[in-house]
Design a protein around this nucleic acid. Structure first.
Lengths: 147, 147
DNA sequence: TGATATAATGTTACAATGTAACATTATATC
DNA sequence: GATATAATGTTACATTGTAACATTATATCA
């Protein structure tokens, strides 16, 4: 389960994350969807409320929300999804399982991977950023392939 | 160090991987470049030899080469790079450190991560595919940021 | 060898994602 | 209320990738 919209608002207030009206609308769209969304899908939803919104509107807001640690950008299929936790920026590492077929994503927190990442971070002097993207086929799509 | 062009040709012959003339030209371009390349950069190089080549030419060849396990597609910055080993398809797992700033990539083989991935693969019934993309800032770019 | 099937490549047009540059509007601060 | 700063609107464009169909090369077999 991902955080509820109200929880996010409270979190932002406590952390002094400046949510304008537009950013609130966008994070609400993302929070109310269990699956990942493309920028364009978010845009279509936003335009129901703000017809003036266009591609730039979305991308600027997304950049802000990513920086604030509220959402993840998934490079593999150009989608955006609410972080399953409200601590993405500083306090934890996560990995995302992405199905190549249906695109669905599952956020996980694997201690072994996190440990190895921190070790790599030291030995390679590499400063970690985004979630780690792990691609493959989910259980559902594997089953469908056989049928 | 990545494999030499001649080594790749030998490998393909031994594995019955059908390298047409065009595919050879493309894999040579990739093999002769130490860094990752975008599809367009490859195209510009290819056009010096085959002026008829266009975007489709490249993408079809890249798809073939990825399926054959010879190159990696990096979703993060839309680039392609020779696999540091010639076994990508079936026999090993690798991770790629990608610098968000300069885009450079380092292929690694971390046993802890591979072990954890195999475990995840079992517990989530998730069939692993591509290399795992790990993004952040490389040592060089971190230094430049301070200066 | 020549007919025929299959694989590869060429060609055109288009869709999707994202950014640059500049104008306008809202918000905060003095 | 004047002014600076942040946010948003607007337009035009760059990049990456794919769909659909035509043509050419390659393999296979009678």
């Amino acid at each position: 389960m991902q955080p509820k919209f109200e929880t996010i608002i409270d979190y932002c207030r406590s952390k002094n994350i400046q949510l304008t009206n537009q950013r609130s609308l966008i994070i609400r769209i993302i929070a109310n969807t269990p699956n990942q969304l493309t920028a364009n899908e978010i845009l279509i939803d936003l335009q129901k409320v703000n017809p003036k919104a266009n591609r730039m509107t979305i991308h600027r807001a997304l950049e802000f929300l990513i920086d604030a640690g509220l959402i993840h950008k998934i490079a593999f299929n150009h989608t955006y999804k609410l972080c399953a936790h409200l601590y993405c920026k500083h306090d934890h590492h996560c990995q995302i399982l992405i199905c190549q077929k249906c695109g669905n994503q599952t956020e996980i927190h694997n201690l072994q991977i996190t440990g190895a990442l921190l070790e790599i971070s030291r030995t390679h002097n590499f400063k970690l950023a985004n979630p780690v993207e792990i691609t493959g086929s989910c259980a559902k799509c594997q089953t469908e392939e056989i049928l």
